[in-house]
């Protein structure tokens, strides 16, 4: 098992390298001159001398690969450069913003897991009932509704009309609820459907028949079906973690939640490239690592996959 783990980790390294190179290429596709932007943003009219000076300060006059290597080596050490706007280290911005996003994503993940498991299991056990049909209609609708629309409707209902929650910001513990619910709604429908379909498929499997034949209690059989279904759904749920983190952009914007999504969007408006650059790299790496972790957990849980090692 240990050797396999090491092999997998080593296999990721080329992927991350390619990712970082792709990120670098993307960044350098920008049409505007970053030296000029850096000057403009600080309300300085760019004369040619100043632009050239800024260019060498930012290290933009060096050859392509040299720039790539210096960027990549600095990034590994955690130095993502300085924001063009605030002149503070990008790492500092990210360090403040990332925990907030992770917090939001964690609460949303909890809501997703609880809702989809409960509703999915119930729908599968009572397949074809009125409740099942209603749930499927709901699932369908929520997949077609834009999350930002749900967000603003929820704000109107719960904050403006009922006054139960804050409209924005991160002040109280309760202020995480509306953003987390909005964020989760986009995913809950997929997972309810997934768990429900997996359970229904498993209900008709041979091992369920044999369990009945052996005279096992119905509750035990349902538990077996559940564990088998969850095991399949877990990969999908695991993959939703990076998607959640990436998908906070809209929600953070509506609810003025100080996370990296909001950071990235304002960086885009300000053409603050170092922040955008760091965002892409970090998100990409997180995605790949999450993939690996989910694979590993899956392997630990399902004895059939261990055979492949």
């Amino acid at each position: 098992m240990g050797i396999y783990l090491i092999k997998r980790v080593l296999a990721i390294i080329p992927i991350i390298l390619c990712l970082s190179f792709l990120a670098f290429v993307l960044i350098n596709l920008r049409t505007s001159d970053p030296a000029e932007i850096a000057l403009r943003v600080n309300q300085m009219t760019p004369t040619e001398d100043m632009v050239n000076a800024m260019r060498s300060t930012l290290g933009l006059d060096q050859p392509y690969f040299v720039r790539y290597f210096s960027w990549i080596s600095k990034s590994i050490q955690g130095d993502f450069g300085e924001s063009y706007v605030t002149h503070r280290p990008v790492a500092e911005h990210i360090a403040t913003a990332l925990p907030s996003t992770l917090q939001l994503a964690a609460v949303a993940l909890l809501i997703i897991i609880v809702c989809s498991v409960v509703v999915g299991v119930l729908c599968a056990l009572y397949e074809g009932s009125v409740g099942d049909k209603l749930m499927r209609a709901f699932v369908f609708l929520s997949a077609a509704m834009p999350s930002f629309w749900i967000g603003i409707l929820l704000i109107w209902l719960f904050s403006v009309k009922l006054g139960w929650f804050d409209t924005s910001g991160m002040e109280r513990v309760s202020s995480v609820i509306l953003p987390a619910v909005t964020l989760s709604l986009g995913f809950v429908s997929t997972y309810i459907r997934l768990i429900r379909n997996n359970m229904i498929k498993n209900k008709n499997e041979n091992f369920v028949l044999y369990a009945r034949v052996r005279g096992l209690k119905e509750s035990r059989i349902t538990l077996k079906i559940f564990i088998n279904s969850m095991q399949i759904s877990m990969t999908a749920l695991g993959m939703s973690i990076p998607k959640l983190i990436a998908g906070t952009v809209v929600v953070e914007n509506i609810f003025a939640w100080p996370g990296i999504g909001r950071l990235c969007v304002s960086a885009i408006f300000n053409s603050d490239f170092p922040i955008i650059q760091a965002y892409i790299l970090i998100m990409g790496v997180m995605f790949v690592i999450c993939n690996l972790v989910v694979d590993m957990i899956n392997m630990m849980v399902d004895p059939r996959l261990r055979k492949e090692m």
Partner: peptide, 12 residues
Amino acid sequence: LQDAMTAFDPLS
């Protein structure tokens, strides 16, 4: 049962 290979719970 007929198909013994799928008759048992795969995770137990």
